[in-house]
Write a protein that binds this DNA or RNA. Structure first.
Lengths: 339, 339
DNA sequence: TGGGTTAATGTGCACGGTCACATCCGCGCG
DNA sequence: CGCGCGGATGTGACCGTGCACATTAACCCA
């Protein structure tokens, strides 16, 4: 009655070792795919593991290796389609690599809340960090905190940045703008996202670049907050003047609000105003009218984030793998101008 | 040169203890808010911690306490508004309690993929599990796996279930249905969600219950997949017969697809057909027409999930705190029937 | 004055892995 | 035949924390 006591305690490598007739170190080697283990021994150990339903203890492993096999994600607005899609794809890619993902959300925009979220993550002993709330403030906060781990972000600056996984937002915005110009629009507004967001800034820049390149008169963009609600109110305001025939919205939700406002003002899309969105949320195809928009490859984005991080963590950095190019999806919310 | 070597190694409680002139155990007590520590001692320790930028090592703590301070979330379709909102609220509540959250996503619907996701989570040594993909299959998979941790789910069965955090989906669906009946509709369809989902099943039941209670002729619900795309195709089919004046959709996205289809068929909402959705996604207010729908209190839901789990984990279970009652939001997609 | 009680702190070990190093064995070769 | 070598495995220490238990000081009351 001295041995073989399995009173609830989960089995550890020594239990496995004892039953397999080897040392705990041999079991550890099997776990880590060490090359010099005889096949017969390995199989015997694996059998015992299966029998005991052995599961390696991550905490113990993390304690000695100083690796938690956890990636952190700093997000904001994560109930929105873009962020949540990216998180999901990161999650999937990480899971495939045997990593877990811990997320922290920024609710307020003040620096204190950002620092708190970063604190929460660093307290988890994460091995790497993905920032999908690339607000300028976040970067400022980032520089005040010693992360001690590799991180990547959705940066879109031309400035070469080792941490940036780039979707070419500028190119996407130019695609959208060019589409409107080619239809014959001469008076185009841009409803931008919060300028605190790098994506918003990049899309706005793409818009302005293309307008200039095509020599079209540019008007100052309107700065929004990504929400349909804002799009609606901005639309109501704009329709009182009506000195334009098209609007390029920085995301689909604001585009939806715009359409709503235009119609509430007694006008029609695309007859009176053409609208282009950005993101191609699944609902965009069923807006009334179905929305012309720009699609981003979120799954690919997530995969690249994880690949880059794991590369850095394991000391074999993945080089700059080129930008991801968005795609213009033409539906019925755009047409030739009426005047 | 024998002591005071800080070659990159992160400080631990013994480092803190040495500098504070106490034992490592005293430091540990400060960390865990042990009552019998003299204030002066405690302050001295805290000062040293701040100076050293000491951070407790979670792995070491988890190793000895057998608690990872991590909650798992099993989700699916998490780029959709409902799931992602719940995840966010869970995340926030957990963060406030000093817990981290690890999510696993179910992509496929086969049992193998469910088991794989659960495996991924249990391998993380989670302390508790929230299941927000309450498909029937998940529960079947669940019974085959020995979780060994408390879990909660969004179950909505009448069957008293200790694990269920209940939003009264049935009541929400009845609210929506009653609204249509009170407007005078006699021929109402229901576009349900996948019956594999408990929410979908509960909303359908609410619909049928109310129809029976009000003695309205019931037609067999259509089984959808939550997507706007499906709503569109279902709508096109339905409009070929047109033996109804209202549709209650099990979520807002499908409702959007329905509206699109009705309009594509040359009809109008709500003039020819009234539509009610479920969820009140932020965009619903800006659909054309703005959607009448049922709102759920997601933040409260997340808080309750976490509260219940932490209660069970710490051995002081929170009792059944009553159901969360959804709210009907009346907008312009519903009106009196035209015939 | 002394024994009991409680508050405040210290001591050593356990948790479950990995790592560095030691050991053992069989084989080829000068 | 002895030596070196490399494959296969074992031994013991260590990672940073919390727990059980021991210890000390202080205080109270008979």
């Amino acid at each position: 009655m001295a041995d073989s006591d399995d009173r609830g305690r989960a089995p550890n490598i020594r239990d496995v070792a004892r039953l397999a007739g080897v040392s705990h170190q041999t079991v550890s080697r099997v776990l880590n795919d060490h090359p010099s283990i005889r096949d017969s021994t390995k199989q015997r150990v694996l059998d015992v593991m299966a029998e005991l339903q052995y599961r390696p203890n991550r905490a113990a492993r993390a304690l000695v290796t100083h690796r938690s096999r956890t990636l952190g994600v700093l997000a904001s607005q994560r109930s929105q389609y873009g962020p949540s899609s990216i998180i999901q794809s990161i999650e999937t890619a990480a899971q495939d690599a045997g990593y877990m993902v811990s997320t922290a959300n920024i609710t307020a925009t003040d620096e204190a809340s950002i620092v708190a979220a970063l604190d929460h993550l660093t307290a988890q002993a994460i091995d790497g960090l993905v920032i999908i709330a690339p607000q300028v403030r976040v970067f400022r906060a980032l520089s005040n905190i010693d992360l001690r781990v590799p991180f990547v972000t959705m940066n879109t600056n031309e400035v070469a940045d080792d941490h940036a996984i780039a979707v070419d937002q500028v190119a996407g915005a130019r695609l959208a703008t060019r589409h409107l110009i080619e239809l014959g629009h001469k008076h185009i507004y841009h409803l931008a996202g919060p300028q605190d967001w790098m994506e918003a800034e990049a899309r706005m820049r793409g818009f302005l670049d293309e307008m200039n390149a095509q020599d079209v008169r540019t008007t100052a963009p309107i700065l929004g907050d990504w929400s349909a609600e804002f799009g609606y109110h901005a639309g109501r305001e704009l329709m009182r003047v009506r000195d334009f025939t098209a609007i390029f919205s920085s995301n689909d939700q604001m585009a939806l609000g715009l359409i709503h406002a235009i119609r509430d003002s007694g006008h029609d899309v695309p007859r009176d105003v053409s609208i282009v969105g950005f993101d191609d949320i699944p609902e965009a195809a069923h807006f009334w009218p179905p929305l012309t928009t720009v699609r981003q490859d979120f799954p690919e984005l997530g995969r690249r984030c994880v690949a880059q991080l794991l590369g850095e963590i394991n000391g074999s950095p993945v080089g700059y793998t080129g930008r991801i190019h968005p795609e213009l999806i033409v539906r019925s919310s755009t047409g030739v101008p009426s005047f």
